[in-house]
């Protein structure tokens, strides 16, 4: 078992998440894709931690989790707000800045 396997998996999940962000119109699904990307990054961090034999990578992953949690809270609140005022959770509907 080599760390490369985990890292490849991490890269794959990250790319899938990124594609999700670009493809989906539902803001909640976009958000979930972002979470997927964060998790992929966490997997890489944890792998690095084990690879180097110290815990700093895990600490990083821990902080990523905390920040992600905060982000989810605020992001979902914003989605709820937008939904309330526009009755839609589609990110494409929020294109009013364009002339």
């Amino acid at each position: 078992m080599s760390p490369e396997n985990y890292l490849h998996l991490s890269a794959l999940l990250f790319t899938i998440g990124a594609c999700g962000v670009l493809l989906r119109r539902n803001a909640i699904v976009v958000f979930m894709s972002i979470e997927l990307m964060l998790n992929a990054a966490n997997l890489a961090l944890v792998t690095f931690s084990r690879m180097h034999g110290n815990l700093d990578g895990q600490i990083m992953a821990f902080f990523v989790m905390v920040v992600a949690a905060a982000e989810v809270v605020v992001g979902l609140a914003i989605i709820v707000m937008v939904y309330r005022s526009r009755h839609s959770a589609s990110v494409d509907d929020a294109s009013l800045m364009k002339l």
Partner: peptide
């Protein structure tokens, strides 16, 4: 990968709390 704490947190916080929030 030996990250026992994170593994548990991942299940409890992410799967349990964050996903439920979603």
């Amino acid at each position: 990968n030996g990250a026992y704490f994170l593994g548990v947190v991942q299940i409890v916080v992410y799967t349990g709390a964050v996903m439920m929030l979603f």
